[in-house]
Design a protein around this nucleic acid. Structure first.
Length: 355
DNA sequence: TCAATTTGACCGTA
DNA sequence: TACGGTCAAATTGA
């Protein structure tokens, strides 16, 4: 728990720093003839940072009560980290099952990602992990069925991460992807992603048109960049995306040449904004993303699950949006924790600042 | 032959 | 009791 709070604390500070930094940047830009949309984005980023900082504070407040309650529950020894993000749907997970009746009071984090493509490559998504589909269900009120995936390494590495893929009713090119559980397999650590043997694992969904696949090409990615849509979602409930169980080591992005090629043109002349778009290019791994790699902008710490080392041949772009407490379609960006300029005079860490 | 997906059944929760 | 989530046998494809 201390580690989690430490992580939250760092993230919180980082979010506030980001907001301040972008605000300062915006202030400077107001004197220059920058495009209005660049400024708009900066404003959105500022709002986003503070929004997430507030989320962290709110979440911590709500979960502190839960943690108190949970202390009365004896946890099994060597419970995997997933026990932090109990998923009510995982029935065969003993650590969860033994406390199934208390599901509602156990904090559960989910991460929701939307990836949309309006042309060219059709809806697909790759987060760099290997998933195995284990179910599909028609959801009441939803036009499209929901697909259920679990980590390929569930059995071999006792990894209980799962995700759900739901095609948007409003826009079939948009997929809502909800992640549950943290990867405890080698994929989830800083270890190099297991390289996939060609031709294996990656098989198009035979019956679902949910996700189609296409081997990415340079042209495709260029197209992608131009057609990419990013949406931030509002979970608006207790399932707020809370990445606090993510390993802190998952933070930090590599900056590659490919990254820059994916920076929105509006930012290409802005080193600061460009640096915010730390994208990576990962080869398809998930069944629904076999032949294509979705553009992924690493957003803030809420997408920690995605930030992991990738081999050069395993590069992808991923667009991930964290779930926001508001409905504002604010793209959120993943900032590295390291190279943020901190105003030494700004008392972020002073006692009571967060209270 | 093996691994991944499909899909109906089952289970737990609200 | 309805619904969402998971299981597992059957199916499919490499």
């Amino acid at each position: 728990m201390e580690n989690e709070w430490s992580w939250e604390h760092s993230t919180l500070i980082n979010e506030l720093i980001q907001g301040m930094e972008v605000a300062r940047r915006l202030k400077e830009d107001l004197r220059t003839p920058y495009p209005a949309d660049t400024r708009d984005l900066q404003v959105q980023m500022i709002l986003s940072s503070y929004e997430k900082a507030l989320q962290i504070l709110k979440w911590n407040e709500s979960t502190s009560k839960l943690q108190t309650m949970n202390r009365a529950v004896t946890l099994l020894p060597e419970s995997p980290p997933l026990s932090d993000d109990v998923d009510g749907g995982i029935q065969d997970h003993q650590e969860i099952k033994h406390d199934s009746k208390k599901r509602k009071i156990v904090p559960k984090w989910t991460d929701q990602v939307r990836v949309g493509f309006e042309s060219g490559l059709e809806g697909s998504h790759d987060d760099g992990y290997n998933w195995r589909k284990y179910g599909q269900k028609d959801i009441l009120g939803a036009k499209y069925p929901r697909s259920y995936y679990r980590c390929t390494f569930r059995n071999t590495q006792n990894c209980w991460a799962t995700k759900q893929v739901q095609r948007s009713d409003e826009d079939p090119t948009i997929f809502d992807i909800t992640y549950k559980g943290k990867h405890t397999c080698s994929q989830g650590s800083n270890a190099v992603l297991p390289l996939k043997s060609p031709g294996k694992q990656e098989k198009p969904d035979r019956h679902n048109n949910d996700i189609r696949h296409a081997q990415p090409s340079q042209e495709s990615f260029t197209k992608f960049r131009n057609t990419l849509t990013v949406r931030a979602d509002n979970l608006g409930n207790e399932e707020m995306a809370c990445p606090f169980t993510f390993p802190s080591t998952s933070f930090g992005c590599t900056t590659t040449q490919e990254n820059h090629s994916l920076i929105p043109s509006a930012f290409e002349n802005d080193s600061f904004l460009s640096s915010l778009f730390q994208t990576q290019y990962v080869s398809p791994t998930t069944p629904e993303s076999n032949y294509f790699s979705s553009p992924t902008f690493h957003m803030n710490g809420f997408d920690g699950i995605y930030n992991k080392p990738r081999s050069e041949s395993d590069i992808t772009e991923i667009i991930s949006t964290n779930t926001s407490a508001t409905n504002s379609p604010i793209p959120e960006f993943n900032f590295s924790l390291d190279p943020v300029e901190i105003d030494p005079n700004f008392p972020f860490n002073t006692p009571g600042f967060f209270s």
